[in-house]
């Protein structure tokens, strides 16, 4: 509607730099041949990456994070898919209330959820570990998955489902043969994003996992030792590249073959 505004454009570019420079520093220093992250840069080296690959505790933490992430993403996507179907296809009594309740874990400070789960989990006499971490991650990821899936379910023509019903498919057949293929890109996007969220999550894991470290906890533990720092930077650089790729793929999937032709409504999330 407006033509040009160079002040705002300049501001946007500066803000853009503010957003990206801190993130880019880690990969830059991960190739720097020095222990401390100070300017000027010394030489170029791969040795921190070498050190990272050969750390066995890191491997264990990585496997823990992958396990938790896979279970959490599958469960939260499945739970959210069923809920998204209910919210978009049926008249739900107390719609706002149920919707709000399911989205609530997204806004409550994580530390409060973590502390509450410690109280109930240890109160029941269980050991802290990866199980309560996974449960808390499912709780935390489900709202994201629900928002992604609802925007896709609202995006396509409901007549397609009605046509299938008219042609004699039952509800289950309609869901698997018509609805599911249409929402599949969003399902994959939801799996990827919830995996990324769980993989990066620190607070819940920190409170609930006791000795079973996840990757963010491993990094947290190493950050205190200056000598260990460079290989954390190398690890951080790899994580940044991989998660960015996963997120870009999921953005692309969400707009892929969007039947209504509309771009996804809520942009990023």
């Amino acid at each position: 509607m407006y033509k040009k505004n160079n002040t705002l454009l300049l501001y946007s570019i500066i803000y853009f730099a503010f957003l990206y420079i801190p993130v880019m520093l880690l990969p830059i220093f991960s190739f720097n041949d020095a222990i401390h992250m100070v300017f000027p840069l010394k030489g170029f080296t791969f040795k921190w990456y070498d050190q990272m690959i050969h750390s066995s505790r890191l491997h264990k933490a990585l496997m823990n994070s992958i396990k938790v992430g896979l279970v959490a993403s599958v469960f939260s996507t499945f739970i959210a898919l069923l809920a998204a179907k209910a919210f978009t296809r049926y008249k739900v009594r107390f719609h706002q209330l149920s919707y709000g309740a399911i989205l609530l874990p997204f806004v409550i400070p994580e530390i409060i959820i973590a502390v509450a789960l410690i109280v109930i989990w240890t109160g029941m006499g269980f050991q802290l570990g990866l199980v309560p971490v996974t449960i808390s991650h499912i709780l935390f990821c489900t709202p994201f998955c629900l928002l992604i899936l609802i925007s896709r379910m609202e995006g396509f023509d409901k007549n397609l489902e009605e046509a299938a019903m008219d042609l004699g498919e039952n509800a289950w057949g309609t869901f698997w043969r018509v609805t599911f293929p249409l929402v599949l890109p969003a399902v994959i996007a939801s799996l990827l994003l919830s995996f990324v969220i769980s993989f990066d999550e620190f607070i819940l894991a920190f409170f609930l996992s006791s000795s079973d470290q996840t990757l963010p906890m491993y990094m947290w533990g190493q950050m205190r030792f200056p000598k260990k720092l460079p290989h954390v930077l190398a690890l951080g650089a790899v994580i940044i590249v991989v998660t960015s790729l996963l997120v870009i793929i999921s953005y692309w999937l969400r707009n892929l073959g969007n039947p209504s032709g509309k771009k996804s409504k809520i942009g990023g999330i």
Partner: peptide
Amino acid sequence: MTLPFWTSYLLRVFS
């Protein structure tokens, strides 16, 4: 604008 948000929160604070 939203991409950096998805990269590890811990790493962003750390940087």
